[in-house]
Structure formats: structure tokens, C-alpha cells
Simulated assay, not measured.
Amino acid sequence: MAKDFYGDLRLGILGGGQLGRMLIQEAINFNVNIHVLDPDPNAPCKRLCNQFEVGSLGDYDTVYNFGKDLDMITIEIEKVNVDALEALESEGVIVYPQARVIRLIQDKGLQKQFFKQNDIPTSAFQFISNKDGLAQSNISLPFIQKLRKDGYDGKGVKKINTAVDFDTAFEEPSIVEELVDFEKEIAVIVARNDRGDMSTFPMVEMEFNPQANLVEFLISPSTYAEAIQAKAEQIAKKIANDLQIVGILAVEMFLTKDGDILVNELAPRPHNSGHQTIEGNYVSQFGQHLRAIFNLPLANTASRGNAIMINLLGEEGYEGLAEYEGLEEALAIDGVYIHLYGKKYTKPFRKMGHVTIVHEDRNTAIENARKVQNLIKVIA
């Protein structure tokens, strides 16, 4: 692989958002030639890559033509044309994660079936073809309805409390899931290269914004018992191995009040639950993803110390050219690292950046993060 790090390797990224941007920032160290496809002419990746192309990620011809002269393709979003990726794979272009993995994870119903077939613990579920099926569900109310396709960042998920909510439910094919009485939402990111080497990042704890259903506050490493952390990491490794995925995989899970772990969803790419690894771990999730897809030795994922990550979301009531309040005050706090995503326009709950706060004392790190959360506002 050595020659590939002198500009010979042409790596395509499907998606030009913040995940692609942070992946490029890491890939620059490998001196890789980066090509990006995104529908937004002002995508965050635009000025950082060697070649930027505007086009639909869902269009067969666009994705095929983008990839046909590249050596390797990876993704920063799952909603891509998998048929085109399969055609490219058949012609010798390396696609990591593999097209078959992306196809499975695009459909939350196929994800659930995969969990069931491979004895991976998950909540009880059933499929419905439209909202009329809600009334026939054998899952007790209240329950969760999730669109099988196109749900992301908290969209495509509804809590159905009573039969009155059936009228406003999703019409499209969905899964009905048992409502989990969880104590904490947790996540483990696992990496796997083509040799089958695997490595997990330490388990993290997450808090979600109740309105947007987005991760708002993340604590790393977890202070749960070693047995719980080891079990979560073991589940993540089993999933990666069962999938035979190459790249990184974020495994979102529920820790129940009874101490059980249930898998919620998968993301076969860099993920919001791993942003703190840039400053908080010996390798970032982005560096580890590149090592995995380049079939290099995986790096040490251990935490350097306590790291808290907060998302910078567009404030409610503001839409337009983004302005950032409180950055200077936040940067005056020790151990604060700001990452702005280069998005020109803000709107309510849009992910505009994140901040990582590190400190040798866990409580101080959390306290400083709460201060930063109150200081920085994204307005227009």
C-alpha cells in the first residue's frame, strides 16, 4: 500500500457533509487523492478535496460514472445507489463498506431480520406495509414506529402512545418496535479490515435532544461496570464479524434498567457517537476507518482521558446565514476544541458543528461541557 500514499490512490467519498469533511482532514495525512460526490454545490467538503462533483447520490448513472475511474469508494451517508456500487464492484472498483452491507443497513427491517437470524439481542418487532397494520400489531402500546427506509438523524421515528396516534402515523412500510424502558443509550464503534482484524473504541454514553431526537451530549469513556462495557464491545464485534464488513461500524444500543443490552441500529460509516475520538483517543474514528479500508494495521483506540462531545445545533426560531455566538468565551475554557462544519446556512436543529471538551477529571469535563453548551448558540 505504501505507493498509494503518494497521491496514487484515488478514493471516492459518496457524500460531502461534515463526516466526509472530517474524513478528508484525516486522509490528507495519507496524501490520498480524494474525489467527492454530493448534491449540494456548497457542501462542507467542496474546498477540501481534489475533485468535487455535484450530483445525486441516488441516481445510478451519476454514482456509476463518478466511481468508474476510481480505485476505491467509501461513504459518509447510507442513502446511495447500491445497484451502481454493485456494478462498480463487479468491474474491480473496491467499495468499502461493501455494497451488500450498505443495502442491508439501508432497510431497518432487513437490519432487524439480520439481528434475529444471528442471535443479536434486540427489541421485539414486526413489519407493517402501511399504517393500517398498526391496529393489528401484536406489540403492546405504547410502541415505536420506524420507517424501514430513509429515516436519519431522528427523522422517520414516531412514538405511538395510543390508537389516537394511528391517524398521524407513517403511511410507508415500517417496523413496529417494542418500547424499551432503557436506563441509558450507549454506542460502540468497531473497525474491521480485510484481514479480519477488529478493534473497538471504548463504549460511550449518550444523551439525546428530546425535540430533534439527535445526540446532544456524549460522555467518553463510560463509567459503567467493566462487564457491561465488555458485553457491548463483544456484541459490536460479533455484528462486524457476522457482516464481514470492511470499515467502521457504529452500533447504537440500549442499556435496560435490568442490565440487558439491546441493539437499536447500525451505521456503516463514521458516526456522531465517535466525534470525541479526534481529541479523546489515540486514534480518531476517521483515522481508524481509513486504516480499515486501506487494510492497514488498526491503531490503539484507548481513551487519552475524559472527553465530552456536544453537538452544535441550529437554534429554534433562526433560519438563514449562520452566526455563532459565544465561541470566544467557550475557547477561554481549558480543554475546549471547536469543530465548525462549514455550513453556510443554519436552520432549527441542523448539525452545524461539534465541540469536544477534555479534562483529566471527569466531573470537571462534564461541568465545562455544560458551560460550553450554554455559551455557544448558532443563530442567523
Score class of each variant (00 low, 15 high):
residue 37 L to S: 08
residue 271 H to N: 07
residue 181 D to C: 02
residue 14 L to V: 09
residue 270 P to K: 00
residue 69 D to F: 14
residue 353 G to M: 12
residue 99 A to D: 03
residue 363 N to P: 02
residue 109 G to W: 10
residue 323 E to M: 14
residue 147 L to W: 00
residue 7 G to A: 10
residue 340 L to Q: 11
residue 280 G to V: 12
residue 204 V to W: 00
residue 52 F to H: 12
residue 72 M to F: 12
residue 246 V to Y: 00
residue 111 Q to S: 10
residue 266 L to A: 01
residue 187 A to T: 03
residue 1 M to S: 11
residue 147 L to S: 13
residue 237 K to G: 00
residue 47 R to W: 07
residue 291 R to I: 03
residue 119 D to A: 11
residue 306 N to H: 13
residue 98 Q to L: 04
residue 342 G to S: 08
residue 10 R to S: 14
residue 251 V to Y: 02
residue 15 G to D: 08
residue 181 D to F: 10
residue 72 M to A: 10
residue 148 R to D: 10
residue 330 A to V: 12
residue 161 N to A: 15
residue 40 D to I: 11
residue 165 D to K: 07
residue 274 G to M: 05
residue 289 H to N: 07
residue 58 G to Y: 10
residue 61 D to A: 12
residue 87 A to Q: 04
residue 7 G to L: 11
residue 263 V to Q: 00
residue 355 V to K: 08
residue 262 L to N: 01
residue 13 I to C: 14
residue 178 E to F: 06
residue 35 H to A: 15
residue 181 D to L: 08
residue 221 P to M: 05
residue 49 C to L: 11
residue 237 K to C: 00
residue 336 V to D: 14
residue 20 G to L: 13
residue 220 S to N: 13
residue 157 V to K: 06
residue 346 T to V: 15
residue 222 S to E: 00
residue 179 L to W: 15
residue 297 P to R: 06
residue 91 E to P: 05
residue 322 A to P: 01
residue 308 I to A: 03
residue 357 I to P: 02
residue 59 D to E: 13
residue 155 K to R: 15
residue 60 Y to F: 14
residue 349 F to M: 11
residue 124 A to L: 07
residue 247 G to P: 01
residue 143 F to Q: 08
residue 104 L to Y: 08
residue 71 D to V: 11
residue 161 N to Q: 15
residue 46 K to A: 12
residue 53 E to G: 07
residue 70 L to E: 05
residue 328 E to W: 11
residue 52 F to G: 13
residue 56 S to F: 04
residue 52 F to Y: 15
residue 297 P to Y: 05
residue 379 I to E: 12
residue 185 E to I: 05
residue 75 I to A: 10
residue 113 Q to E: 13
residue 88 L to F: 04
residue 146 K to L: 11
residue 274 G to V: 03
residue 353 G to T: 09
residue 189 I to L: 04
residue 3 K to P: 04
residue 32 V to F: 15
residue 178 E to I: 11
residue 322 A to L: 03
residue 309 M to L: 06
residue 145 Q to E: 13
residue 139 I to G: 13
residue 229 Q to D: 01
residue 82 V to A: 04
residue 217 F to T: 10
residue 371 K to W: 12
residue 333 I to E: 06
residue 133 G to H: 06
residue 233 E to N: 04
residue 149 K to I: 15
residue 282 Y to M: 03
residue 86 E to S: 01
